[in-house]
Design a protein around this nucleic acid. Structure first.
Lengths: 222, 222
DNA sequence: AATTGTGAACCTCTTCACAGCT
DNA sequence: AGCTGTGAAGAGGTTCACAATT
């Protein structure tokens, strides 16, 4: 969905980037993190490609939509490219995240240390069940959902995670938008209605298992 | 990646189905489950489309790759189509799943009741940490990883979930393949090397947060 | 000699538009 | 009249292949 050459519209404009491109950039970034640890200073598109199961042309095209980061004959400078990707992806800072719904998924996400490690801090979580309020999990307090706006403002949170039952997801989404949240990770298996300028990503683990079920049943790979 | 009309190759052949098509079929199935509960008997492609944020042509094309399930002038029979999709997706049975790695993600998945609800039973889990062995979680025993082959056979498990650190993922994958597993859900952020006929799905929650980070940083939607 | 950056070709998936049923 | 099923057209994303550069 790249409308035009992004280099000519750097950081501006309403251009839509394909989901797959952003995911690939994230993976390139991880690869760079790990090879940087090994002392590698330059990496060719071919190597970056092998690690991520894409073609080298894909890597070059992906990177070239954001700038000319490589040196012909040498490849890409590992540290430099890593930093460029961090700027592009917004990984050169930490993000405050609020979590709504402390049921099975919610608790699982709180236990999942990887988010913090990747720069995303769950600063507060919310539920409507009075029995859950107050009992902090892993040092993160559980608040009543009504206190959402205050706490979002207080923590400067910019990302919301929805981990409530499907029927409540849209309502929770609306409240998050009211509180100023513009980016949502939704674990409820339902499409959310949001205005322009708000990004929603969907995480649906059951659907991945169903894809495996399909593959085993049909004998086709997916 | 639909090679040819699937109706003419029904259930046979090495045809590859696009990831997005399978996911849409799963969503259609869920929609049918919920409208079936409301007593609706026929549903038009337009309605099915609205629930899932796709076009009605997309719905018709998707379904028509597997058969002629609709009645012109009326739409699709809810119950009939639901059953067809269950057959196509392999959701007309239960699946036995083994989970490898009882760290944060592993425990989270065990706590996540949705899998069982959708027909996937985690029948055994595995770890290499002797301190964890034996202590069952939610009635599911934790075995030593060495016992994997026996228990896979014993339970007739066909799906494996990998929830171990990145460095061990490929090794665990190989052992799962040795044990006869042909479908894997991998939570480690690394591409797995597998032979033809094996399906791997990747689940990477951090990458979704990074996509949100990108959207907020760049002002572009994803 | 090696590797990037990129226009063009290619391929896959989505949407259009309408013939064909009910 | 209403809706499906589908060939054709369109859009978007990927790969090819080569000129440009170090």
């Amino acid at each position: 969905m790249i409308g035009e050459n992004l280099k000519k519209n750097n950081g501006r404009g309403p251009f839509c980037i394909s989901e797959s491109l952003v995911k690939r950039l994230s993976r390139y970034h991880r690869t760079l993190e790990s090879v940087a640890g090994l002392g590698v200073t330059y990496i060719a598109s071919r190597e970056l490609a092998e690690y991520n199961w894409v073609t080298s042309a894909q890597v070059r095209k992906d990177l070239s939509s954001f700038g000319n980061f490589g040196k012909r004959g040498m490849g890409y400078p590992v540290e430099g490219l890593k930093q460029e990707l961090e700027q592009i992806l917004g990984l050169d800072r930490r993000w405050s995240v609020v979590l709504v719904g402390v049921g099975n998924i919610g608790r699982a996400l709180l236990a999942f240390g990887e988010f913090r490690h990747r720069g995303f801090d769950i600063v507060a979580c919310f539920d409507i069940d009075p029995k859950k309020i107050g009992h902090g999990l892993r040092g993160i307090p559980i608040h009543h959902f009504d206190d959402l706006p205050d706490l979002v403002k207080q923590h400067g949170a910019e990302i919301g995670i929805i981990a409530v039952p499907t029927v409540s997801a849209q309502e929770v989404c609306n409240r998050l938008l009211d509180a100023g949240i513009r980016a949502i990770l939704n674990f409820a298996p339902v499409r959310l209605e949001v205005p322009d300028g708000v990004t929603v990503r969907y995480e649906d683990m059951s659907i991945e298992l169903e894809a495996l079920s399909f593959a085993l049943t049909s004998g086709r790979s997916v």
